Every structure is written in C-alpha cells, then in structure tokens.
Simulated scan of single mutants.
Amino acid sequence: MSGVEDRVRRALADAPADLLVDHVTAELEASYAITDVELLQVDYRLSALLPLTEGEPVTDPGHPAWRCFDHQEPVVAGDAGYLPVGMRGERRGVLRVAPVPDDPAAVGELLGVATALGHELTAVNDTTDRYRTARRSRRLTLAAEMQWDLLPGRSRVRPSFSLAGQLEPAYAVRGDSFDWSDDGHRLWLSVINGTGEGVAAAMLTALATHALRNARRAGIPLADQAALADQAVYAAHRGAQHVSALLLELDLASGVTTVVDAGSPHLVLLRGGRVVEQPLEAQFPLGMFDGTDYRGQRFTLRRDDRLFVVSDGVAEATGGNVRYGEHALTRFLRRTGSMEPLEAVRSLIGELRAFVAGDLVDDAVVVCLDWTGPQP
C-alpha cells in the first residue's frame, strides 16, 4: 500500500460518515494537487451515474464514467480520471478526479484510493442516508424502499464465482427479491416472489427472506430451509398468501448444485454459448399448505457455466400488446456469454425497457451466476 493510500484510509476512518468524499478531496489535493473530486453513484435502475453534489446525471453509455463502471478499470479522458468505486464486486459507482496526474503509478494509487472509499461507503451505509438519497433519481415507493433494504447487495465476486441481480421496476418493485450468502465453501442463493401488491407483498417477501436466513444460519439443509420458511409463511397467513421461491446451494469446490423449486422463477443454464434445459421438480410455493415436505434435487455445473434465474415478469413483459416471451428471452441470454454478470443483467433489463418503451409494469427479478470452477 502506498503512502497516499495509507493516509487516505486513515482520513476515511476518522471522517464523519457524511463527509467521506470531503476528506478524500483534502488528501488528494495535498498529495496530487487534485482540486476537483466527485463521487458518481449508480442509481437504482442501473441507468444513470448520479453526482453526490449538484451536477448533471451521466446517462450516455459512451461516457468515460460508464466505460470505467462497465469495465471496472481506470479511464483517463482529457484532464479527468475516472476510477471504479466498489467492494468485493459490489459496484457503487465512479470517482472522478481532475486534474489527473500524468503518471501511471499515480493512477494506480488513485485506484487504491477509490477502492478504499468503496469499502468505507459500505461501512457507513446504515449510519447515514446521504449516499442512499443521492443514488435515486426519483422517490422510491414504500414497498421498493423495503425491498432494496432487504438485499445483500447487487453484485458479488469471489475467486470461484461471480453473480449479480436486479429488481424492476427499480423505483416501484413490490414482491420480487433475491438473497445470497457464501462462506468460502458454499454459495446460497434464493429468488423470491411474494404474492399481492404494494407493501403487503413486500412484507410477505421480507418474512420469507428472514425465515430462510434464520434456517440457513442454523446450518439446516436446503430442503429443510424451505420447509421452515413454508411453516413461517403459513403460520402468518394460513394459506391465504404464499411465496414462490427458488433456493439454490452451490458447492464451490465441486460444482454440485442443490435446488428446491417451490413454485419458482425460471432457471436457465447457459453452457458453451448454448441454452441447456435443466428440468426441475415443481413443488408447492412457500406457505400455500400446512406442513409441506420439500425435496432438493442435484445437478453438477461445469467450469464456466452460467445460470440465470428470472421471474415470470421477464418473459411476460408486454409492449404494444405483444408478449416478450420465452424464445426472445433465450435468444438474448445466448448473447450475454462474453459479458460480466452485472453487465448481462443490466443488458437484459435494458432490452426489456426498450421492448415495453419504459419501465416494466409488473415486478421482475434477474439474477446471473457464473461458476468459474474450484480455486485455491
């Protein structure tokens, strides 16, 4: 770690939660005579980079800030430098600095500064609303506020896997959600759709998510996690409401994948550029009946396989009285093989928005998971 990075990390640790960027600016001015520093955060729709202070949103996909965000590499354009801000694969946005030093070593140090800022932004996320507020281009509905606060993040990168997810319509999502966790040996993923509308759907999804987390953290096998969440939802609603869910557990050393399909979204396997049918045993949604027994089924991923989990709202998106449909979805997913998971998710959502000529009306969730094989 360079001396500059070390000083910035100390400055960030000492800074009030709402003044992180101000303290970074002071350190960069002292070290590099950089006088213009701006944090551009990606918004909830993944369609704009919004400045923390006053300024215009960056929406042009060809802009250097978007090239930096998409490729997660520093970009120098004129006298400005753009540096990716994130933590462990969770992309927060871009740090713009000017005038940028004409020295590759200095740019490398600035990249370390941006990464340190990403870690600190995550650390203070629950103690201040400043960064959350600046990430939205319009007001979230109450249900959407609940859903976004429930998420573990929007992307994750580890040596043996990478994944990303997105909710739509981002500012008004109701019952669709996803959750994930890993311990270095296994990855758990759930994609959930609570029935109903508005806050009622969000509350139902939150109940199912917390029930699944509670069972998972107790070390209970995947099928029993589904059974305990089923009991929690049934106890609260006596079958009047239920939750469709797909639960997945991936062994990161072997690729062995266990799945429980509880009235779930669609699971699509992309292998070698081809969509491979992966039949699942359809079981009852969580909370539909009292005491449902669930069964896990297994299949094995190969190195560099990609899984998509998409809710019904994707294929059923409608534009001009025409349904998007499974065939269009399959064709589009084939074209995502060269993209990183977050780029693939963002591209699919962008395709759907173009198809419906605006935001989606019904909820949709897309999750993309790459297994890169066992790593040391």
Score class of each variant (00 low, 15 high):
306 R>W: 07
255 G>S: 10
346 R>G: 12
366 V>H: 03
338 S>P: 09
330 T>I: 14
150 L>I: 09
368 C>W: 00
189 L>M: 11
162 S>Y: 02
5 E>Y: 01
195 T>Q: 10
300 T>Q: 14
128 T>H: 06
89 G>M: 06
216 R>S: 07
187 L>H: 09
238 R>I: 15
341 P>N: 10
119 H>Q: 11
186 R>V: 13
50 L>H: 07
169 P>H: 03
141 T>N: 05
269 L>P: 03
226 A>D: 01
28 L>H: 02
205 T>R: 01
297 Q>E: 08
253 A>E: 12
332 F>D: 06
233 V>R: 02
113 V>Y: 00
288 M>A: 08
299 F>P: 00
12 L>A: 13
325 G>D: 14
160 S>D: 13
307 L>I: 10
96 R>P: 03
70 D>N: 12
371 W>G: 05
295 R>F: 06
76 V>N: 04
309 V>F: 01
173 V>F: 01
308 F>N: 02
47 S>V: 10
370 D>W: 02
72 Q>M: 12
220 I>L: 03
319 G>D: 05
32 Y>T: 05
9 R>A: 14
374 P>H: 05
116 A>M: 05
198 G>L: 06
231 Q>I: 07
45 R>N: 04
195 T>R: 06
61 P>W: 10
293 D>Q: 15
132 R>I: 11
323 R>G: 11
238 R>Y: 12
166 Q>N: 07
161 F>Q: 02
145 E>L: 11
352 L>C: 07
203 M>A: 15
330 T>P: 04
293 D>I: 09
301 L>T: 01
213 R>M: 10
137 S>W: 08
141 T>C: 08
20 L>F: 02
212 L>H: 01
310 V>Y: 00
128 T>P: 05
52 L>P: 06
354 A>C: 07
223 A>H: 08
14 D>H: 13
213 R>E: 15
286 L>V: 03
170 A>E: 02
206 A>S: 15
64 P>T: 10
310 V>I: 11
85 V>G: 07
348 L>D: 04
57 P>R: 09
180 W>F: 15
347 S>Y: 09
69 F>R: 03
22 D>Q: 08
123 A>Y: 12
8 V>Y: 04
35 T>S: 14
266 H>S: 11
263 G>W: 00
356 V>M: 07
246 L>Y: 00
45 R>C: 05
144 A>F: 01
305 D>E: 11
106 A>Q: 06
21 V>K: 00
58 V>P: 02
328 A>D: 12
247 L>F: 04
204 L>T: 08
142 L>W: 07
111 L>R: 09
150 L>W: 00
250 L>R: 02
147 Q>S: 07
191 V>H: 02
298 R>I: 01
361 V>E: 12
363 D>V: 09
140 L>Q: 10
134 A>S: 14
189 L>G: 04
50 L>E: 05
13 A>Y: 08
122 T>L: 14
363 D>F: 04
166 Q>S: 14
115 T>K: 13
256 V>N: 02
327 H>E: 15
365 V>C: 13
329 L>R: 09
245 A>C: 10
194 G>K: 03
